[in-house]
Amino acid sequence: MRESKTNKIERAKGVYQSLFAEYPDAKCSLHYKSPHELLVATILSAQCTDHRVNQVTLGLFEKYTSPKDFAYCNVSQLSKDVHSCGYHNQKSKSIQGASLKIVEEYGGQVPNNLDELVSLPGVGRKTANCVLGEIYNVPSMVIDTHMVRIMNLLKFTHTKDAKKIEFELMALFEYKNWVKLTHLIIDHGRAVCIARRPKCGACVINELCPSAVI
């Protein structure tokens, strides 16, 4: 039997409350000290762990201390500097391209709206929403691999398309909780709802999850 939207909203509320109680300190795990550093770190995080990104940016942000440093750097050297994050050639071009546009068109300030953010080279909705939520406190959702997988397990969506998932979840969860929700799901995905070996018996939302195996 198909679940009604009303029931889904109630179940979503329960999921959020349970995860918030379990991970009250959940937050962005990328290390940064400025909007631009978060932008760079988020670009590097594609297909790479946050732990690895933090290891790389520790030295990277000492070497490149401003958007201008990234904008006018030697992109081949930048590629070497971020090599261990994977896809280093593309990521270095994206970082330099985005930084150049920020410097030359936005006065060195990272834009604070979705349309301008996604106009930056290498910046998609995931990166843009991360910056909007973390820096500018704009209610937004970052749809990463944990969100895709767990929201499918919860039957809140039946697609792998990140943009479609984003809009489906916006209709289920309160907008004031959108930013926190992403961090809760990421922490839960790392600790309990692990891709190849989910610990359903230890899961605080197993009674709300149609896919739980107990």
Rank of each mutant, 00 (worst) to 15 (best):
Y106N: 13
I102M: 06
A98V: 06
P121K: 01
K101Y: 01
K93Q: 14
Q109I: 14
G107H: 12
I95L: 09
K101C: 04
S92F: 10
N112G: 12
L120M: 05
K93C: 02
V110I: 13
G97M: 10
P111G: 05
G97Y: 11
G107L: 11
G97W: 09
S92Q: 05
N112S: 14
N112W: 06
V118W: 02
I102L: 06
I102G: 11
N113T: 07
Y106M: 04
L117G: 11
S99G: 09
Q96W: 03
N113I: 04
V103L: 05
E105A: 12
P111F: 10
D115I: 02
S94Q: 05
D115T: 10
S94N: 15
P121C: 02
S119F: 01
Q96L: 04
K93S: 10
S92N: 09
L100G: 00
K93H: 12
I95F: 11
I102R: 08
G97H: 07
L114T: 00
L114N: 01
S99Y: 04
P111M: 06
K101S: 09
G108V: 12
E116M: 10
V103C: 13
I95H: 07
E104N: 14
V118M: 08
S99N: 06
Q96I: 05
I102E: 06
D115Y: 02
L120A: 04
G108F: 10
E116L: 12
V123I: 09
D115P: 00
L120V: 03
E104K: 13
Q109F: 11
P121E: 01
V103Q: 06
Q109P: 00
N113K: 09
V103Y: 05
N112D: 15
I102Q: 09
K93T: 02
Q109Y: 09
E116G: 00
L100M: 13
E105K: 13
N113F: 01
V118E: 03
G108Q: 09
K101R: 15
V123S: 08
S119I: 01
G107N: 12
E116Y: 06
P121R: 01
N113A: 00
V110M: 10
E104C: 04
S119A: 14
V110T: 13
D115K: 13
D115L: 11
G108E: 11
E116F: 01
I95V: 14
L117F: 09
V103S: 03
L100W: 11
N112H: 14
G108P: 13
K101I: 14
G108K: 08
V118Q: 03
P111H: 08
P111Q: 08
S119G: 01
E104I: 02
G107T: 11
S99T: 08
V103K: 05
V110D: 06
K101G: 00
K101P: 00
